[in-house]
Nucleic acid binder design. Structure first.
Length: 927
RNA sequence: GCCUAGGUGGUGGAACUGGUAGACACGCAGGACUUAAAAUCCUGUUCCUGUUAAAGGAGUGCGGGUUCGAUUCCCGCCCUAGGUACCA
C-alpha cells in the first residue's frame, strides 16, 4: 500500500475526536505543563497558512511534553468579541453573534484538518455569557479594590472604608487620583452617601473619571493608547482626536513598578521585554516647584537632571497647561492666544512630524527660582507635552538640546553649569565635571550634588525625589455594541455595581448597531433595559482586551458555574509554562494580562505573580506574490502578450499580480492562467527555455495580491503532516519569513520514505524482529538526542532536517527492524502525528497510545566514534587525516608525529610548538 | 535619533559553549529504470584559476583587532527588518 495521507489523516482525526484522546484531567500523578496559544479573533477570511505556524509549534511542544511524561494542558478558544463582526453587523443588520458563530465553525474545521492535540472539551469563547459572566465579575472586583502603597498590593474597598471610619484619611498611602481629600473619621461619617461614593471612586482600580481620551469618530468610540498607531486607529486606520470625556479607566499605573520588576523574572524575548519597559517608561528624578507669588500658586515640573537646576533660564508650559490663562499678561495676551490657536489646529500627526520648527510664546509672567529666588521667564511651547509629567518643564539650555535650540531662537540666556561643558555648538548633557555657577553645589560632583539638592528642596517644601512613569491608565469603555456589558448602574449620577448573583448581565438586543440619535452608544437602543426597572445601566461595553486578560485561568476549569476557576484547578495548573503568539500584543494584551493576573493574586485567588513564564514570538509569515509582465503597446496600453521574467527588460512592461496557486516553482501554468481571468483567454506568451518564469515579491498576505495560500489546499494535496513539517522546516520559528510552497516536495518525499521503511517493494507491511546493527542503532540514537535538544530550545527547523538524514541513513541500511522503527516514530510523533499513529497501530500497538508512549532513552554508547583517522589542522590552516587513537597524552602524540612519514611531509621539518586538544581529540598542531 | 534583532551559495536555511563553513531541502545539470508519463534512485552543484582531472586561491555585509584557529568574541562603519520618539 502506498502512503495515502488523505485516508490516514481523516481516520485518525476522527479516532482522536471519538476517543477524546487528548482530554486532560486536572488531577494527575504526572508533573503538569501548560502550553498556551494566543487565541484567535475569528475573522471572516478564515485561516491562511501563516496563522497556524505558532499553533503547530505549540502542538509539537505539547506532544513532546506528553511523551516526556507530563500532564499537558493544551487548550484553544476564541476571542470572539470585536470590531469587525460589529462593522459587518452595521452593514448587513445581521447579529454579530451569528457571523461570529459561522466564523468559529470555519476556524474549527480548518484547525481540525491540521491534527492539533487540543483538549476541545475546554474550549472557551469570550462572547458567551458563561464566559463573560466572569469577565464582569473581575471588573466588579476591580471596582471594589484600591491600591495600598504601604502593603504594595490591591486591597478591598471595604478595608479602605473601615480605615476611613476609624481613622479618616490619615495614614493611607494609595495609588489614587490627585484630588483626593483629607478628612477625619468624624468628617467621613458626616459625608453624604454621594460624597462618600465620589471620594471612593478616586481610589477604585476600575474608576470613572473625566479624562482626555483618544476619540475615533469613524468608529464612534474611544480607543486605548495601544490601539492608536501614529495618530490613527489600529483597526481601519481612521483619524483619532483628543477629547475630554467621562470614561471608565483601569488604574494599571498602580502596578507600573511591579510590572517592570516582574519583567526580570520571566523568560521572554528581549525585544518584547524592552518594548514593555519603554511603554511603562520609568524615569527617576525629582519634582520641583517654581513659586508664582502673583497667583499665590506654583508651577510643578518633573526633571531627571535636578543637578542642572542652576542652569535654568526659563520655564516652559504646554499650551494646554491650566495656569496659562492666569499667567498671561495683558501685553502678551494676543500673542499667546494666537499661539494656542495655532497649535490646537495642528493634528497629532503634524505635531509629531514637525519636530524641527522652534515655536513658542512668552506669557509675560515670571516664576521664582526655588533656590535662588531669581525671576525666571515663563513661556509656552508645544514641545512640552501636556500628557507627560506635569505638562511643564524647567528649561536648562546648557544641558538639554531642545531647550538649547529654543533659547538660541528666542535669545534667552544659556548658563554653563559644569567645568567640563562645551556649549558653543550644542547642549552638553555630560555629568562628569564639577559644578560652576551653581550656588551651594559649586565644586561638587553629580553624585554629591543630587542628594544635597533634594535635601535643600525638601526643607524649602519646594521639591522632592520622584519617580515618573510614561504609562497612562487604560481607558476601559467602548461606545460599541459587541462587547461585555459593564455590570454597573447609575444612581444620582454615581456608579453602583449590580449584585454578584445577578451576573451575567446579558448583552441586550438592539434594533440597530449604531449610536442613538442623541449620540449614546448602541446599548442606548435596548428597550426596557434598566436596573430594577429604574436605574440606567452603563451604556458603554468593555474593550476588546477585557476577555483576553484572564482567559488562561478559564481553561483550567472552563465549565465552572460558581467561580472563574476552582481553587483546586488554579493551584494545580498555576501559570502558563509556555505561551506562543505574535509580538504585536507586546503593549496591549500582554501588559493587561500581567496586570489582571497580579490583581487576582493580590485579592487572594492564586499565588503566581506572572501569568506567562516563558513566551515565544512566532515570526509573521508574509505572502510571496508572483507577477506576470504584460507587454505595453506604443501608447502604453496593456496588450494581451506576456513576457517571461528573464526577457522582460527587452520590452516595455507592466507587472501584474498573478494567483500564486497557478504558479509552481515560479513557473506559470499557462492553461490555468488563460482561465484565471476572462480577458486572458487568448493570452500569448514569450517564453524562456519553453517556460514562463514569474517575478516574485514579498508582501503581506492578502486577497487583492493573489498570494493567499489556504492550508486546506496544501493539506488535500500533501497532507497535514507535510504541512506541519514544512511550516517548521521553513526556518527559525521566531523569524519572519515569506511563505513559499516551492520546497514542500522535499518534506513530502521524506514522509513517503518513512512509510517505505515499514513496507517491502510490493508495498506490503513488513517489519523484522531481528536485532538491529550498530549502524542502525547509531542512526536512531542520533535522532533521539537531536529531537530532544532541538525541541527544548525551540529549534524545530533543524530537527526536520535531522529526520531527513535519519530516514536516508536507514533507507541506505535497508533497515526494517522493529526495535529501530518503533522508537523512530515516537520521536516523529510530535511533528507528524497522523502517519506515526498509523504506523504505530500497524506495528500492533493499541491505537491512540503513541501520544502517551515514553520518549526513547538516549544511549550515548551508540554514538562513540570508532574511526581512528580524523581531520587535523596545522596552524589552523592545512588539513590532514591523522591516524591517531583517542586518549593519548601530548608526549605520545608528539612521538607518533615525529615517526610518521606522512605527518612529517605536512610538518615540513619544523618542530611542534603546541598541540591543541578539544574533548580528547587533536584539533590543531602549531609549528 | 534611540532601542532590539539580523546580514552566510541561484533560493529557504545549517554550523548549539571559538575547532573540517555551506548540513538538510528546493532549484538546476546529467544519468538509470520506463514504449511513455508519474513515481523512485544515482551523480554533480559556493566562487575563481585549471580542457577534464590533479591541484591551488578566495570566501559568512565592509574595514580593523584578539587567537594556533573567528560565521561565532572585541572596536569602527554600511545595509535590512521590527519597535519607539520633542518623555523633560
Amino acid at each position: 500500500m502506498e502512503y495515502n495521507h488523505l485516508s490516514i489523516e481523516q481516520k485518525w482525526q476522527k479516532f482522536w475526536a471519538d476517543h477524546q484522546t487528548f482530554k486532560t484531567e486536572t488531577a494527575s500523578d504526572k508533573p503538569k505543563y501548560y502550553v498556551l496559544d494566543m487565541f484567535p479573533y475569528p475573522s471572516g477570511a478564515g485561516l491562511h497558512v501563516g496563522h497556524p505556524l505558532g499553533y503547530i509549534a505549540s502542538d509539537i511542544f505539547s506532544r513532546y511534553k506528553r511523551l516526556k511524561g507530563f500532564n499537558v494542558l493544551h487548550p484553544m478558544g476564541y476571542d470572539s468579541f470585536g470590531l469587525p463582526a460589529e462593522q459587518y453587523a452595521i452593514q448587513t443588520g445581521q447579529h454579530p453573534a451569528i457571523t461570529t458563530e459561522a466564523n468559529i465553525n470555519r476556524y474549527r474545521e480548518q484547525m481540525d484538518n491540521i491534527g492539533f492535540s487540543y483538549d476541545w472539551s475546554r474550549e472557551i469563547r469570550t462572547s458567551e455569557p458563561e464566559y463573560y459572566h466572569w469577565t464582569q465579575w473581575i471588573f466588579m472586583k476591580l471596582f471594589d479594590a484600591w491600591y495600598n502603597k504601604t502593603s504594595d498590593k490591591a486591597e478591598t474597598i471595604q478595608a479602605l472604608i473601615q480605615h476611613f471610619e476609624s481613622q479618616g484619611s490619615a495614614g493611607i498611602q494609595a495609588e489614587a487620583d490627585d484630588d483626593i481629600r483629607e478628612f477625619t473619621a468624624a468628617e467621613w461619617k458626616d459625608f453624604s452617601e454621594k460624597e462618600q461614593q465620589e471620594e471612593l471612586l478616586k481610589y477604585r482600580l476600575a474608576y470613572l473619571r473625566e479624562s482626555t481620551v483618544n476619540w475615533c469618530a469613524a468608529l464612534g468610540t474611544v480607543l486605548a493608547n495601544d490601539e492608536v498607531i501614529n495618530g490613527v486607529s489600529e483597526r481601519g486606520g481612521f483619524p483619532v482626536e483628543q477629547k475630554k470625556m467621562m470614561q471608565w479607566s483601569m488604574r494599571i499605573t498602580a502596578y507600573a513598578d511591579r510590572l517592570l520588576r516582574g519583567l526580570e523574572t520571566i523568560d521572554w524575548p528581549e525585544p518584547l521585554v524592552e518594548m514593555q519597559r519603554n511603554w511603562i517608561g520609568k524615569s527617576v528624578g525629582a519634582s520641583v516647584k517654581f513659586p508664582v507669588p502673583q497667583l499665590n500658586s506654583e508651577i510643578e515640573v518633573f526633571t531627571t537632571r535636578l543637578d542642572t537646576i542652576f542652569g535654568v533660564s526659563f520655564v516652559v508650559l504646554a499650551p494646554e497647561h491650566e495656569l496659562v490663562d492666569a499667567l498671561t499678561t495683558a501685553d502678551q495676551k494676543a500673542q499667546v492666544e494666537a499661539y494656542i490657536d495655532k497649535t490646537s489646529k495642528k493634528s497629532e500627526l503634524d505635531r509629531m512630524a514637525d519636530t524641527k520648527t522652534v515655536s513658542g510664546a512668552f506669557t509675560g509672567s515670571y516664576a521664582k527660582h526655588p533656590i535662588t529666588g531669581e525671576d525666571v521667564q515663563i513661556w509656552i511651547a508645544d514641545y512640552v507635552l501636556a500628557s507627560y509629567g506635569t505638562g511643564a518643564v524647567m528649561a536648562v539650555p546648557s544641558g538639554d538640546q531642545r531647550d538649547y535650540v529654543f533659547a538660541k531662537h528666542f535669545g534667552l540666556p544659556i548658563i554653563a553649569i559644569s567645568d567640563t561643558q562645551d556649549i558653543s555648538e550644542a547642549a552638553d548633557p555630560n555629568k562628569d565635571g564639577k559644578y560652576i555657577n551653581s550656588d551651594f553645589i559649586n565644586g561638587m560632583t553629580y553624585q554629591e550634588a543630587v542628594p544635597a539638592l533634594v535635601e535643600r528642596l525638601e526643607s524649602l517644601k519646594l521639591g522632592k525625589a520622584k519617580v515618573n512613569f510614561r504609562m497612562r491608565d487604560a481607558i476601559f469603555g467602548r461606545q460599541r455594541y459587541w462587547g461585555e456589558p459593564v455590570p454597573v448602574y447609575f444612581k444620582e449620577g454615581l456608579p453602583y455595581l449590580i449584585k454578584e448573583e445577578e451576573l451575567p448581565l446579558l448583552l441586550p438586543e438592539v434594533d440597530k448597531y449604531l449610536p442613538t440619535e442623541s449620540g449614546e452608544p448602541p446599548l442606548g437602543r435596548a428597550e426596557d433595559w434598566k436596573y430594577q426597572d429604574e436605574y440606567e445601566y452603563e451604556l458603554s461595553t468593555m474593550p476588546g482586551w477585557a476577555g483576553s486578560s484572564w482567559y488562561w485561568f478559564r481553561y483550567m476549569d472552563p465549565k465552572n458555574k460558581t467561580q472563574f476557576a476552582s481553587s483546586e484547578a488554579v493551584d494545580y495548573w498555576k501559570a502558563v509554562d509556555l505561551y506562543i503568539g505574535g509580538s504585536e500584543h507586546a503593549t496591549g494584551h500582554l501588559l493587561y494580562s500581567r496586570f489582571w493576573n497580579k490583581f487576582l493574586k493580590d485579592i487572594g485567588y492564586h499565588n503566581e505573580e506572572e501569568p506567562f513564564k516563558k513566551l515565544i514570538n512566532q515570526g509573521m509569515i508574509q505572502g510571496r506574490s508572483n507577477f506576470v509582465y504584460r507587454i505595453l503597446d506604443a501608447e502604453g496600453r496593456g496588450t494581451n502578450k506576456f513576457v517571461s521574467l528573464g526577457l522582460k527588460n527587452e520590452y516595455p512592461t507592466i507587472p501584474l499580480h498573478v494567483d500564486v496557486n497557478i504558479v509552481h516553482n515560479d513557473v506559470l501554468d499557462l492553461e490555468k492562467f488563460k482561465s484565471f481571468r476572462p480577458d486572458f483567454a487568448n493570452a500569448e506568451f514569450i517564453l524562456e527555455n519553453g517556460k514562463y518564469i514569474c517575478g516574485t515579491e514579498v508582501e503581506k498576505m492578502s486577497k487583492s495580491k493573489f498570494n493567499v495560500v489556504n492550508p486546506d489546499d496544501i493539506i488535500s494535496q500533501y497532507g497535514a503532516d507535510t504541512l506541519r513539517l514544512y511550516e517548521m522546516f521553513l526556518g527559525p520559528l521566531e523569524q519572519a519569513k515569506p511563505w513559499n510552497t516551492n520546497g514542500i516536495e522535499g518534506v513530502y518525499k521524506f514522509l513517503r520514505k518513512v512509510w517505505r521503511l515499514f513496507h517491502d517493494a510490493e508495498g506490503n507491511f513488513l517489519v523484522s524482529d531481528d536485532e538491529p546493527s550498530k549502524a542502525e542503532y547509531k542512526a536512531l540514537h542520533k535522532i533521539i538526542k537531536k529531537v530532544e535538544e532541538d525541541i527544548e530550545r525551540f529549534s524545530f527547523n533543524t530537527s526536520v532536517s535531522a529526520f531527513m538524514i535519519c530516514a536516508n541513513e536507514l533507507t541506505d541500511l535497508k533497515c526494517n527492524k522493529r526495535k529501530i522503527l518503533q522508537d523512530l516514530i515516537i520521536c516523529l510523533e510530535p511533528y507528524a502525528p497522523h502517519i506515526t499513529e498509523e504506523l504505530w497501530s500497524l506495528l500492533g500497538n493499541e491505537p491512540g497510545t503513541i501520544s502517551y508512549a515514553p520518549y526513547p532513552v538516549f544511549n550515548p554508547e551508540y554514538l562513540v566514534e570508532s574511526e581512528f583517522a580524523y581531520p587535523v589542522s596545522i596552524n589552523g590552516k592545512m588539513r590532514m587525516n591523522l591516524p591517531l587513537a583517542l586518549d593519548l597524552d601530548q608526549k605520545a602524540v608528539e612521538a607518533i608525529l615525529m615517526e610518521n612519514q606522512d605527518v612529517q611531509k605536512y610538518l615540513d621539518g619544523k618542530p611542534v610548538k603546541k598541540i591543541i586538544f578539544v574533548k580528547g581529540k587533536i584539533i590543531n598542531i602549531v609549528i
